[in-house]
Computed example of a mutant assay.
Amino acid sequence: MRSINQVGDRIELYPEDISFTLAFSALDFINADTLRYAYRLSDFESGWRYTDSKSKLATYTNLDPGRYRFTVKAINKENKWSSNEAQIEIVIIPPWWDMPIWRALILLTIVALISTMLWLRFRTLQLRSQELSVLVDKRTEDLNRAVEKLTLLSTEDALTGLKNRRYFSQRATEAWNQFFRYKHTFSLILIDIDLFKTINDTHGHGVGDTVLIDVAKILTENVRVNDIVARWGGEEFLILLPALNVQEAYWVADKLRKKVAEHPIKVQGKQVPVSITCGVAEIKHYESVEACIQAVDKKLYEGKALGRNTVVN
């Protein structure tokens, strides 16, 4: 048997070498035909395999990539084993994709692909979220506009654009609370358009509507920004004047009376005279807003009885 266990003695096989056979023979015995052999492939076989001189071959197939050491020894008919064992290293080279560097590259590629897919998914969700956010903002803005419009409709008189009775009552309640807690006074002016029914009957309801609109405009243009002018009902208007006493409210009412009288309504080339009568009261003389409104209403009718186009406080 020829020993080839020197350093560097090895066989390299590739993945396509699915089967290989090793032939061996003993050189240090005579009568070779009577010899027996034992061999094994370390890291593959746990025990020895035995054969005789007629079959001095070892065949292996489909070994996993790795390093193996093939060892063979001989024994003669006196059962004396040879002191020389023949060894050879067998290296099964893994396929390119099974090598560490390629495994690392494949792993990195997979990680990169997964990361890219996750980033694209995240980016898609982010863009979708931004689109939804813009849509929600737009819907919210539309909803706010709708709410504002509904709020405006619920607090505004459709014909004149003045605040309606409901809104005035809310603000008057707030003013009463301020007066009750902190003695912040306020006054009310109740206004009625004189002979409004006659204007409607004589010139038609269209002209009557024009009179209401023009009077409302004169009232709002000649009071303070924080004063509240409301259409109380029909041809009546109610004004809340924060911080004004009854004498100051009287001056405001008389100013409004004069402004209305100075602006007759033009109908088909003709001027229709318009006048108003006002009742004035200050909250400090009454126990509630309702009582104050009843008072200005009474004073208004006193003014009507005095001949209209006047102010009564």
Rank of each mutant, 00 (worst) to 15 (best):
Q6L: 08
G269T: 05
K73S: 12
R10Q: 15
D142T: 08
L107Y: 08
G303F: 07
M1F: 11
V229T: 09
A249V: 02
E78R: 12
V207R: 05
L108P: 00
S83W: 14
N84P: 01
Y50F: 14
D214P: 00
S129C: 07
D227W: 06
G307Y: 13
A216Q: 06
L125T: 10
L150V: 13
V223G: 05
A26Q: 13
G204S: 06
G8E: 06
G161F: 11
G303I: 03
I90P: 02
V311Q: 04
K73N: 09
S53Y: 10
D28H: 13
R49G: 08
Q87C: 12
I293R: 00
Q126S: 04
M117Q: 07
R224T: 09
V280A: 08
A112V: 05
D28N: 14
I213H: 13
K255R: 15
K266G: 00
T151F: 05
I4G: 09
A158V: 12
L143H: 10
L188Y: 03
Q268K: 14
G206P: 00
D98E: 14
I30M: 01
K163G: 02
D194K: 10
A23P: 03
E262K: 11
I4S: 12
I11R: 07
E45D: 14
S19Y: 04
H184V: 01
L118Q: 11
R123I: 02
I18F: 01
F179V: 00
I239K: 02
I110V: 15
R123M: 13
D209L: 06
A58S: 15
T155M: 13
Y68G: 01
V311H: 05
D194G: 12
G303Y: 06
A295F: 01
I293A: 03
E89D: 15
N222P: 12
K255P: 01
R231S: 02
G233I: 05
H285F: 12
L63K: 00
R257H: 07
D209S: 07
T140R: 09
D33F: 08
M117V: 13
K284F: 01
S115Q: 10
P100R: 09
S46Q: 11
L190A: 03
I93M: 14
L162F: 03
K73T: 13
K299L: 15
Y68E: 04
E287W: 01
L256F: 07
L300H: 04
D192H: 08
S83V: 13
R224F: 07
Y50R: 12
L195D: 15
I189C: 05
S288Q: 10
F168Q: 00
E287S: 14
K258S: 11
P264H: 02
N245Y: 00
L238W: 03
I101K: 10
I110G: 08
W102G: 04
Y167L: 05
